[in-house]
Design a binder for these strands. Structure first.
Lengths: 371, 371
DNA sequence: CTGAAAGCGCTTACAG
DNA sequence: CTGAAAGCGCTTACAG
């Protein structure tokens, strides 16, 4: 029954309505077109194509015929009509606080989209700046609500805490941000556990004096990472010294321009350093280089983020903690689609980080061992 | 007329239909709800809210009343219904060949979304891998077509040439890719002009022997950049030598592991180097460093891409050519929305690159001048 | 197994 | 200036 390609002749429409129908150009075939061409009712065509109660609702030959016609006419169901009828668009809104703008956290988006596709959902992606006014945010949310998305994911580039505005629909989940009102579910990385990972990597390599280059910009991740880091040091019975801790802007210049501990007597300086993020670590590399020092011979370094094009490309490649951004993105979609609201104590999901071992961690300098 | 917040009482629905309507929870108000509460017909409510022929179609007092009620009920028009009726979803599909996955070209997406918002359009974002089979691509396109997007943007991470599959709707535009069938419009960066920019920067700094580290991976941008580069050298009356040209994989290792020209006699080596991209330039930095050489004192370097977190963060910061990704993304949306199909010779839009001057270009080493 | 009918929530001629 | 009616393209009781 292959009567040639695209839009070949079939029985003319019985439909008397629009005279515009020349069918010359590529008007999309409707379900009615299919039904007419197959000689069945629209009801039957619908059922046949959707396989509702397959085999019993519609006879197999009819089903086949409808499907063949649909194929021949290149029928594509109109999900707009379907959505209106079923009161369900297969659609999720993804609002981002710059994640689409900054390469940094884009894997959240990619993973969210992939997970959405797995559930036959499409993603509307909307970028509002970090500095968006409430009015701008509201406009973004409204656009999504008007399109009747089944839920909204509000994603942030950096782990943040947010006082959720009240114009957000019930079915909103925060991604890489925690809603402090507790009204919405939140998915965040487990920064504290990540900090533990970093410290552990250094401790296990034999370091006993470990410094920390902290963030001075007030990221909510900072105290968490620091806590995990310090807990491990304490549990390992290692000392701490205020002179081993520094803080700076969380970027390359922060890492490069911060004076480290090389003014300390050689037997009192840290032999390992944990940096709040990879960019600071990159800056620390640059500073060491200017000092004629080497990683990891003179100083072992652990970063945070496993940032693409940085961590793996540094010389030597950086050992770092990887944020579970992809998993977080996927989880966000699952949460949005998940019917039952989480119990209160499950409102915040913390996804664990992983350690990526590369070449920036080595044993402590031998000369210092005996110091 | 502020009768309290959300869903406060108004005249009960005359609508006898669904008994499900408890209105207890947050059911979205419909236009009919608004009309009932305002004591007008649905027609009038629609016209009042949409400002059709403002002032003449509906009296000002009526208009105001309807709007007040709409506000009180937190009415949000249902664009699904509107789309079905008007046969126009305000929606564009953005299919990406990994752009959402790789931080690299994400600004195309961000700019496209911003431009779309400017036209009251929402973007469906879909990521298909570079290695997606035709069947997978088709599924992505179908999903978009079923949602009746008004057009599709097919974005590629790297400048490519594509033989457009025939299942793409007419209104598709390629972004960062050229459709070789000529059936669709394409927006690409002007790599040749970018190559000219790079060469010019070096020539103007006084370099007379300029090397090129080319891409060996077959990127379509490579011959274009090389041509622009070489044209400028020729026009400047500078010589060329095969021994000044190398090619390697377009990443950090490619730049780092390629032997440059330091085996040549000092008065015959290039004093400037143009790298196919920033990552190769980053690799070249690393190699020079191992050789104990400095940028730009020993070698001036120009990259390509102005890649975030790399170009500006290198030590010294890299002079490079910036791809007009944001402008390209915005143009793509304009093209999709643009009713009149371009004339054949306008099928491909080439957007110019810009030079970003930083610190990796200096004068040629003095010692070599006299060579 | 099949079809006629209602209705999702809008917009837009059309008639008053 | 206002409203009743049709219809966008589907799905889904409901009745045969």
């Amino acid at each position: 029954m292959s009567r040639g390609p695209l839009l070949s002749g079939y029985e003319p429409h019985r439909r008397p309505r629009s005279p515009r129908r020349g069918r010359a150009t590529s008007t999309q075939a409707t379900l009615r077109d299919v039904a007419d061409a197959a000689g069945v009712s629209v009801t039957t065509a619908s059922v046949a194509l959707n396989d509702v109660r397959a085999g019993v609702r519609v006879s197999e030959p009819t089903r086949r015929r409808v499907r063949e016609v649909a194929k021949r006419l290149e029928y594509r169901p109109n999900s707009v009509a379907r959505s209106l009828r079923t009161q369900s668009t297969q659609t999720i809104g993804f609002i981002s606080d710059e994640v689409t703008t900054t390469p940094f956290a884009v894997s959240m988006l990619a993973a969210a989209q992939a997970e959405a596709a797995r559930h036959d959902q499409l993603l509307f992606v909307l970028n509002v700046g970090v500095d968006a006014t409430p009015a701008m945010q509201r406009r973004a949310v409204d656009a999504l609500v008007e399109h009747r998305v089944s839920g909204i994911i509000y994603a942030c580039m950096h782990h943040r805490e947010i006082d959720a505005p009240d114009f957000l629909p019930q079915r909103t989940v925060f991604l890489n941000a925690r809603d402090v009102t507790g009204r919405h579910r939140s998915i965040v990385p487990d920064d504290e556990q990540g900090g533990r990972l970093a410290a552990t990597a250094l401790v296990e390599a034999g370091h006993e004096r470990i410094g920390y280059l902290d963030d001075s910009a007030g990221n909510v991740a900072a105290p968490l990472r620091r806590k995990g880091f310090q807990d491990v040091l304490r549990e390992s019975g290692l000392g701490r010294s205020a002179s081993w801790e520094r803080s700076a802007t969380p970027d390359v210049s922060g890492g490069r321009d911060t004076e480290l501990f090389f003014d300390l007597p050689i037997d009192q300086r840290p032999t390992g350093l944990f940096c709040f993020n990879d960019r600071m670590a990159m800056g620390a590399y640059q500073r060491l280089r200017r000092l004629g020092l080497h990683v990891p011979d003179d100083l072992s370094i652990v970063g945070f983020d496993d940032q693409e094009f940085i961590a793996a490309e540094l010389d030597p490649p950086l050992t770092t903690v990887r944020l579970p951004l992809a998993e977080m993105g996927a989880r966000a979609v699952q949460q949005v689609l998940d019917a039952d609201p989480a119990t209160p104590d499950e409102q915040t999901v913390r996804v664990p980080c992983t350690l990526v071992r590369r070449a920036s961690v080595g044993a402590p300098p031998a000369v210092l061992e005996q110091g």
